[in-house]
Design a binder for these strands. Structure first.
Lengths: 205, 205, 205, 205
DNA sequence: AATGAATGAGGGTTCATTCAT
DNA sequence: CATGAATGAACCCTCATTCAT
């Protein structure tokens, strides 16, 4: 019985899956509830049984991310503000996003939409907190840029590199390496030997 | 007479201005032609006198960018593939974009939309060509990432840093510096001392 | 309850009825969906719940005809190609159309529209097949004309005779008689006794 | 000067030509003034210099027909109501239409449109008068049908036979022959031998 | 847990038409 | 003789949403 008709209590989940797929493929506005419903072979009205509005679907998608990131931030705030912490921070961040690639693609490609989606502010704020954990407020402008770029490369890197050959996981590691390098460069050893602004300490050690 | 009836030859331009403003503020899909028309105090139909379709307005906006970028690419292809060329390339690129900030914000925040806007492919291609001018095909994956990140930081940096205090032009220069640093690191001196490809040559000298 | 809220299962049918009425009265292009909707006291959107497009409404109208005509053609193709068959063919054809008068009026008066309505080709083809069942390919040109005229008179006759007094059913029979006469004349008794169906003296001399 | 720029005083004529071509090809409603203007490489506004409205263009097209037909009717009304007159009447009618084929195609295929185009009534009336000249009011219903069919076959025949092979002029003559035959049959010799109303007297007697 | 039927608002687009120049 | 610029009305269509069943 349960096997012949595979849709049971999982409809909510299936809606989320299809929605995320379509949102990230075509964009939020270009994806209509009709389309989602059709792909699921249910009625539009069925979607409304599970979600109050279209926006609610998106919100529910982001909820999966919120947990991990909040955890990450909480962790970060308890650590000492050392370079090591920062490096670990972005390592963990990159980790968190690995599974959430489609959602991030969606966020990345629909910023204009996400911006006024209420959830947008929430995330912007999270990003800002993360950014604050990475940078030194008093640091040079370039260092601030390095931190932001590090964060950004983690977000956007995967999609930007779709045309570049290579195993996804390898790519992610490469991106992480560069991001780490940037964070490292942005946090010069206040008392390390003045020299080296360089990079990629991670790998060498 | 000429003041009372504002029918001057500038309508097309005014449409572009308002459209770009609204597109980049609210997103492409969320901006209706009615809205644009109202802000201009003309009829929707007037827009259609000047542009064949909504998409056509966007296309016309992008056309302003095409020239400069094509020129840049043409220049790049004539130069020797040295580090100096590459550094100059992104310097010029950053320059080109300075005036086109709103358009780039639009592009950045409406990727999902731009993607299937036909003009999207054109630009993706341009990006790719630029990318090819920066990277060495045989280089390590991390170096490829550095190049892409450099390009990206120029695109997205300005908007990402809206919350960071500072003069826009100073920010731009900071971003350029980091981007240059990344490109430099990505193109290790084949014959420089074998050791560490350290970066930020620009600033230090 | 059922009377106060007329939401019954008949809306689709009602749309077809009203649409046919208006299409045949005013023409396809001159009839807007708004008009149809208003006459039905529903929203335009309601029409779209039942039909994918305006053209789809027309198609659905024609579908009622397709069956009978296809049946007729199928029958015709199984019969021997005798004069009797042909006479019976147009008798049955005239019968089929009796109930479809408004639809045929529509077709007759909106040929330019129907032509590029996709359904147009379908019907043209059916007409051609019918025509082929009536005529002898090797026959004189005048005989071909007789056959086509027979078919046409059945189509157009009713509308052409709206100003002529008389009971509709009587008119139909009169038209059928003339059409039969034409088909008969077009299929001269290769070797029938010389007597009868006059006409076409021209050829014989 | 006049040769290099071939449009001089003939613009009005050229508008009519193009309009008729497009109207009869695509239908009246489907043909926009923009389209006509584009094909002529003038502005829409230019059309309005020559014609007050879209409908005016159609009216002007029909004006070319009015003369010949009115002449024909005037002639017919002066003749004795003999079979010979009637035969001659449709012969002349067929002649008149020969040159006006596209216009008649337009009329034939856009009846719904023509109907409420004001000119429509005018033509309907003409048709009716012609019909009255052909038929005997007291005659049998079938005879009325014969007359109407005769008239109709002249109108519609050419287009209906587009798929039938043959020289256009030959087709026209064949149609005329059948039409004559019908009119002949519809006007039985009150005092000819009572028997069978055979037709096609034209050629014989 | 889901559907069938419908709505209201709005989308982009096209049209015939006008009028100052 | 013709254009450039614009309008107002209408068009077909799609959307997110609702609600009785």
């Amino acid at each position: 019985m349960s096997t012949s008709h595979p849709r049971r209590g999982n409809t909510r989940q299936r809606i989320q899956d299809v929605a995320l797929e379509l949102f990230s493929e075509q964009g939020y506005e270009k994806t209509s509830l009709r389309e989602i419903a059709e792909k699921l072979e249910v009625t539009k009205a069925a979607l409304y049984y599970h979600f109050k509005t279209k926006e609610d679907i998106v919100i529910s998608l982001f909820e999966d991310l919120r947990g991990p990131i909040d955890t990450l931030i909480a962790w970060g705030e308890l650590q000492p503000r050392t370079l090591g912490t920062k490096q670990e921070l972005i390592r963990r961040y990159s980790d968190s996003l690995r599974d959430a690639a489609p959602l991030f693609r969606f966020m990345q490609e629909n910023q204009a939409t996400v911006r006024d989606l209420a959830i947008g502010d929430t995330f912007k704020e999270r990003m800002h907190t993360l950014f604050d954990l990475l940078r030194e407020p008093e640091a040079e402008l370039t260092d601030q840029v390095r931190c932001i770029t590090a964060l950004f490369s983690i977000h956007a890197g995967m999609f930007a590199m779709q045309n570049v050959a290579g195993d996804p996981e390898e790519k992610r590691r490469a991106i992480l390496e560069v991001a780490t390098e940037l964070v490292t460069a942005a946090n010069p050893p206040s008392h390390r030997r003045p020299a080296r602004p360089d990079s990629a300490q991670t790998a060498s050690s």
